[in-house]
Simulated assay, not measured.
Amino acid sequence: MQLTVLGGCGAWPTAAQACSGYVLEHDGFRLLIDPGYATLPRLLEHAAADEIDAVLISHGHPDHCADLNPLLRARALSDDPPPALPVYAAHGALDAVLALDRPGMLGGAYTLHEFPPGDRFDVGPFVSATWLLPHFVPNAGLRLSTEDAVFAFTGDTGPSPDIPRLAEGADLLLSEATYVHQVPAADAPYLLTARLAGQYADQAGAARLMLTHLWPGTDRTPLRTRPPKSSADPSA
């Protein structure tokens, strides 16, 4: 299993980095996860638009799905359009982005598979288990498994006891960490800190932790400091 990071900026892209976007590969199958703002140009540095085999989206915020539109355009409007792209997302999550073009323009470019977070299904060689995790909109935490590896991704989420379950024994936990030490009170139920992401990774016994969805302009130096195990404040 191989992960390529296309971007990890929260909310909007910067000149240096795209928003959330990841390609997970196994046995020649390329799964695009959360194609947020500005990820398509990064993707095309690694693979052509018609070389993506499926798309899986955690939730419907545009910094996680906006570049699905230009990806589908690149496939639908090519001289030799590839087969319809399987796209997996929670019910209604992609209504806005799929309505950007005139009705029917991209209809043959994708096949939409909607699921309730908490469902389990296969995507190519990956066994996918999902969890409903707290966010401003329905968000599916993702656990993708093959015979020899486990990848876990929180999407965007606030504190939840389900996160260590999602990431139990994972080879890699990719966790949102919008803030380093403290989330503003109004957003505390819906976003994580780097500190809490580290605690969840420890609880899960994940082999590695990668932080993403960092607020643009975040100083990343403190993110590499291991949090003290005594800290238990879910908003800290």
Rank of each mutant, 00 (worst) to 15 (best):
A16Y: 13
L71Q: 01
L68K: 11
R42Y: 02
A74Y: 06
D53A: 07
S20N: 15
G124I: 10
A84C: 09
V55D: 04
F151A: 06
R73G: 04
R75H: 06
A232Y: 13
S145R: 09
D122E: 11
S145H: 02
T178A: 15
C65P: 01
G60M: 04
V123Q: 01
A16L: 09
L100T: 13
D122A: 15
G21K: 03
C19L: 07
T157L: 03
H46T: 13
C19D: 09
D95S: 06
L144E: 11
T178I: 03
A48I: 07
A47V: 12
P35M: 03
A185Q: 13
A49D: 02
P62L: 10
A15L: 13
L3T: 04
A167P: 02
P35T: 01
D171R: 04
D27K: 08
A185K: 13
V137S: 10
L68H: 06
G141A: 09
T146N: 07
R75N: 08
A140S: 12
C65W: 02
M105S: 13
V5Y: 00
E168Q: 15
P62V: 02
E176G: 11
Y22K: 10
L56V: 11
A197T: 01
L68M: 09
G10Y: 09
L85N: 00
F126K: 04
D162W: 05
G60D: 01
M1T: 09
M1K: 09
T218Y: 01
Q2I: 09
T154Q: 06
A11Y: 15
A197E: 00
E51Y: 14
A236D: 14
T39Q: 05
L43P: 00
Y88T: 04
Q203L: 11
I163V: 15
A18N: 06
P234H: 01
H59R: 12
G141W: 02
